[in-house]
């Protein structure tokens, strides 16, 4: 165990020097069975090559910042155990479908704009003053949207979505799942404000149901379901008399 080693191949890209990204190989000790890909990257950064760049923060699958391609699959690197890959080498690349800023760091601006566009907060027609008390909810009402609220904005679903890869205008899985989360919330009255974005050509109707978003989600969210449900719901609003109510 003490001298077990594993090869990590990580994408390197310095915009000032490199024309295109390339893979660099590091052989490091695989000293502990609980080591994850992020531990390997941290080992490389601290012991081998301080210039390797990547994002990470919480190490417990809640901040959503350490998403990368691990052997071609989008993963949270804090939750990708080396023991599942060893003795094969582990190829770590930046998330697919996004511009690369540097090494394993992608530009997430596009996602941030889309996230903001669906207004992921509770919208009330009439704000009530703080002193008037809280908006109460039963457990059953929470169950209506609970799984969609588990999204941590890690963007793995965008990296898995070939529709987004082919057309960056697509609103994308996480944004629509979060729109659904708020539209299903008994306290929310913002559906009408979100409709122009989610019911657009580049919204739910761009999705052709590959379903890979739901496969790669590390938090058990089912964005593919959210999108198909939204297709049905927006169609019903359009077709049914009085369907266009709030």
């Amino acid at each position: 165990m003490a001298d077990k080693r594993i090869t990590i191949q990580a994408t390197r890209y310095d915009p000032d020097k490199d024309e295109r990204p390339r893979l660099q190989s590091y052989e490091i000790p695989f000293s502990d069975d609980s080591m994850v890909v992020l531990d390997a990257l941290n080992y490389i950064k601290s012991e081998v090559d301080g210039s390797l760049s990547y994002r990470w923060s919480c190490r417990m699958g809640i901040c959503g910042s350490c998403g990368m391609m691990v052997n071609g699959t989008p993963k949270l690197t804090c939750n990708a155990f080396l023991r599942d890959y060893w003795p094969r080498p582990v190829v770590v690349e930046p998330l697919n479908n996004f511009p690369v800023i540097r090494d394993l760091v992608i530009d997430m601006d596009d996602f941030m704009h889309k996230l903001k566009a669906i207004k992921p907060w509770i919208i009330r027609r009439q704000e009530i003053p703080l002193g008037a008390g809280e908006h109460r909810q039963t457990n059953e009402q929470i169950d209506d949207f609970r799984q969609f609220s588990q999204c941590i904005n890690c963007m793995l679903c965008y990296a898995a979505c070939p529709v987004y890869g082919l057309n960056n205008e697509f609103l994308g899985p996480a944004a629509i799942a979060l729109a659904r989360r708020y539209n299903l919330d008994s306290r929310d009255q913002g559906l009408k404000q979100r409709l122009p974005v989610i019911a657009d050509n580049e919204g739910v109707w761009e999705c052709s149901f590959v379903g890979e978003c739901s496969v790669v989600c590390p938090k058990g969210v089912d964005p593919a379901k959210a999108i198909q449900q939204t297709k049905l719901e927006t169609t019903m609003r359009f077709v049914l008399p009085y369907g266009n109510r709030d």
């Binding site: 310095d14 915009p15 090559d49 301080g50 760049s53 990547y54 800023i101 540097r102």
Partner: peptide
């Protein structure tokens, strides 16, 4: 020791 002299996303 600072190995990374890049001005882009220099996490070191």
């Amino acid at each position: 020791k600072i190995e990374d002299s890049s001005r882009t996303f220099n996490t070191e």
